[in-house]
Amino acid sequence: MHSVLEESLKKLKKSGLKHTQKREDIIRLFAGEDRYLSAKSIHEAMDVAYPNISFDTIYRNLYAFADIGILETTELNNEQLFRMSCLHEGHHHHHFICEQCGKSIQLEMCPMDFFEQQLSNCQLNSHRFEIFGICDKCVSNQN
């Protein structure tokens, strides 16, 4: 966790965003989780140390962190979710995302090989692939 936090704080500084304790605490919260989190859950966690922190402050920071590559986002049930960016892991991959707890499981296979063959005369600029479902732990808790 420590190196991810340090790397993220370096990105923060390099981007020109001011390093504040609130921002560091938000990043620290994500560094300790391997799952997607909602702005609401971040607000609830931050409200303990910062009782007057607004949703606007949370959203502004989450989107700023996503813009500079500290966080990545996805949408589930019309809600934007955030997690620590895994670009630092150095290889291309996708995720399975639990719809109940937000747990993220790394997938090693990329389906783009198939689509690149199907679209050989097209210029592909980017892609995004996520699988949503219920993780093994949440399935076990249902039984």
Rank of each mutant, 00 (worst) to 15 (best):
Y50F: 03
S54G: 11
L119C: 03
N61R: 11
C86H: 12
I27E: 03
E99K: 13
K14D: 15
K18T: 15
L107E: 00
E99D: 07
K18Y: 06
C138W: 06
V139G: 02
V4P: 14
E72T: 11
D67Q: 12
H95W: 00
H127R: 02
M84T: 09
N61Q: 14
T20L: 03
E6P: 07
K103M: 09
I97S: 02
S3V: 14
R128S: 08
L81F: 13
E108T: 01
E99T: 14
D67G: 12
C101S: 06
L81S: 06
K13A: 14
N125M: 15
D25W: 00
K137N: 09
F132R: 02
I27S: 07
H93Y: 01
G69L: 02
D47P: 07
N125E: 11
D47V: 12
Q118F: 04
I58R: 07
R60M: 09
D25A: 06
R128T: 08
S3K: 10
H95S: 00
S120Q: 06
D56Q: 10
I105L: 04
D56K: 08
Q100N: 14
H91Y: 02
A49L: 13
S85Y: 05
C135F: 02
K13L: 11
I53K: 03
S38K: 07
E33G: 12
H88I: 13
A39Y: 15
H92S: 06
D34P: 08
P51R: 01
C101R: 09
K11T: 09
S15G: 13
L107K: 01
F65P: 08
R128I: 06
L12H: 04
I53E: 03
E7A: 10
Q123R: 15
N77Q: 04
H95G: 01
Y59N: 09
T74R: 00
N121M: 07
K40C: 07
E99M: 08
R60N: 12
S8L: 14
E33Y: 12
E108P: 01
F30T: 05
S140K: 10
G69F: 11
D34K: 14
S85Q: 08
E24A: 12
M46C: 05
I27V: 15
D56N: 11
S41P: 10
Q123S: 13
G90K: 00
F132V: 02
L5T: 07
E6W: 04
M46H: 05
D67H: 13
I134R: 04
Q123T: 15
M112Q: 00
Q106F: 02
I105R: 02
G133I: 00
I58F: 15
K18P: 05
K103F: 14
S85E: 07
A39N: 08
H91T: 06
G32K: 10
N141S: 09
S38D: 08
F65R: 06
D113S: 03
V4S: 13
A49K: 09
Q118W: 05
I27L: 08
G102K: 05
L76T: 05
Y36M: 08
H88Q: 11
L5S: 05
Q106L: 03
P51Q: 02
H92G: 05
N125H: 15
H88F: 15
N143M: 07
T73M: 10
F55T: 11
N125I: 15
I131F: 02
E75Y: 10
T20I: 03
L12Y: 04
